[in-house]
């Protein structure tokens, strides 16, 4: 117990003195989380819509796969991408290993299942009559999709929260693919791991505290947006 207080006592001044390296890690973490979540949203929402609204053979199997991918161990994704991007591999010519770009790619892949599976589930939970009625009154595919997203917005934003949470907290794939290189491609989570590995517990605690505060700020922001979606009109209009 004393050790915790001691390390906290050392950690807090580090945070409040604005360590420039810590600020760099915070900025990179925010970039990775926002870009990965945005990319996963752009890719994942159309897939989630197709799984929820589409009528094609194998839809149930794809839904089951999307749900199963929620439990995908990040280290496994890291290993798979490492094999794919390693210099001798088919995509080795891209020279992505131990770069910042691969961290963005890995985090996007890890966030994607949350967007796909949770948004599909939210849309499937809608009253089927509304979407069927829209089709029967002439709504096109885009209009029905926008209506579904708007009506399921609470669940869809929950999917984005989960994706953002993964992007902020995941460490294994980042460490494996990016190398967790000090001062270059560390995120707050991987930097915590790095400091613990080096025995710098006060630094690890400081970074951990910053990570928790960042998670709280971003999640609260999305939470407010989600609750607004429940009660207040959002500028997230159906295609009309």
């Amino acid at each position: 117990m004393r050790l915790i207080w001691d390390e906290l006592g050392k950690a807090l001044p580090m945070i409040f003195h604005g360590n420039p390296q810590l600020l760099d890690v915070i900025w990179f973490t925010v970039q990775v989380a926002v870009v990965a979540t945005a990319a996963a949203t752009l890719i994942g929402l159309p897939i989630g819509l197709a799984l929820a609204l589409g009528r094609f053979r194998g839809r149930n199997l794809l839904r089951a796969l999307a749900n199963a991918s929620l439990a995908l161990p990040p280290v496994l994704v890291g290993v798979f991408l490492f094999i794919l991007f390693s210099p001798a591999a088919p995509l080795g010519f891209l020279h992505l290993i131990w770069t910042r770009r691969v961290v963005f790619i890995a985090q996007t892949i890890l966030a994607l299942p949350f967007v796909v599976a949770l948004s599909a589930a939210a849309i499937q939970a809608l009253a089927p009559g509304l979407l069927a009625q829209a089709r029967l009154l002439g709504a096109g595919r885009l209009q029905v999709s926008m209506l579904a997203l708007r009506e399921a917005r609470i669940g869809v934003i929950a999917a984005l929260i989960a994706a953002l949470g993964t992007s902020l907290a995941e460490v294994a794939a980042v460490a494996l693919l990016g190398g967790n290189i000090y001062g270059y491609d560390q995120t707050l989570a991987s930097a915590t791991l790095y400091e613990v590995g080096g025995g710098y517990y006060a630094d690890a605690v400081a970074i951990g505290i910053v990570l928790i505060v960042l998670i709280l700020i971003l999640m609260c922001g999305l939470g407010v947006l989600q609750q607004q979606g429940n009660g207040i009109r959002m500028r997230f209009r159906s295609a009309a």
Binding site: A127, P128, G129, L130, A132, Q133, A134, L136, L137, G138, A139, Q143, L147, R150, E151, R233, S238, A240
Partner: peptide
């Protein structure tokens, strides 16, 4: 067609009818 189930979108009544006209 008006289906049996009167499911409406989560917006005002007028906006629901306007939405149908948009469709």
């Amino acid at each position: 067609v008006a289906l049996q189930s009167p499911d409406l979108a989560r917006r005002t009544v007028l906006a629901n009818v306007v939405l149908a006209l948009a469709w």
